[in-house]
Simulated assay, not measured.
Amino acid sequence: MKLTKQTDYAFRILMFCAAGGDRLSRVADISRVYGASEPFLFKILHPLVEGGVVQTVRGRNGGIRLARPASEITLAEVVRLTEDNFTMAECFDLDDADCPLIENCRLTAALREALDAFLAVLEKYTVDDLARPSAAVINLLSMIEAGPPTGAKPGRA
């Protein structure tokens, strides 16, 4: 199973917000950090907001932040919100399946078990696990957001 670009960037958005703590994050900053267009990020934000993972604050000084602590947002929850289709094989969709073995095939059961195991592993990890343990990630996101120090040359500390 391959996760979509939408899910990949959803994780990135959530890591950015987690690294910022309670501070509001701006989509423009996230766009700049990850090199993704703002419209693309807004598209990804929609299911995260609807799912109660991200909160938006409107206005001149508005932005986004996690709606709950990062330690309460599982990776499985994010995947379920951002992935449209968990059909690993034609036989997952009984209405469109065109296989004569569908009623007696063990492949469907094996694939369903694999998908359940995949999601079960993702239930064990949270957004906090992605952002918290690595001070380097937090520092990198903070440094990128703030921009280079005045007078600093790119690539030099």
Rank of each mutant, 00 (worst) to 15 (best):
R32H: 11
E113T: 13
N85V: 09
E77Y: 02
R23Y: 07
L107I: 03
E123D: 15
V54G: 02
L41F: 09
P148D: 12
A117R: 15
A157G: 08
Y34R: 00
C17V: 12
N61H: 06
G63T: 06
V33T: 15
K124Q: 14
A67D: 06
A70D: 04
L66P: 01
L111P: 07
P47M: 06
L75F: 06
G21K: 07
V49A: 05
L107V: 09
V27C: 09
R106C: 10
D98G: 11
P133H: 14
C99T: 07
F118S: 01
A120Y: 11
D95L: 10
Q55S: 09
D116M: 11
L48K: 01
V27M: 14
I102N: 00
K124M: 12
K43Y: 12
L115Y: 03
M143D: 14
A157S: 06
K124G: 04
L66C: 02
R80N: 02
D128C: 01
G51Q: 03
P39V: 06
R68A: 13
N104I: 15
M143T: 03
A146Q: 15
F11R: 00
T150N: 10
L141G: 01
G51T: 05
M15Q: 15
G63E: 04
R26I: 11
V79A: 10
V121Q: 08
R32G: 04
N85T: 11
D95G: 00
N61L: 05
L141E: 05
D93K: 10
S25W: 10
A135P: 09
A146L: 13
S71M: 08
F40W: 04
R132P: 00
L107E: 03
L111S: 04
V79S: 03
P149E: 09
S71I: 08
A10F: 09
V33N: 09
L94I: 12
A76G: 03
G52A: 07
E103S: 09
M143R: 13
R12C: 14
L94G: 01
V53C: 01
L3T: 11
K2Y: 13
L3R: 10
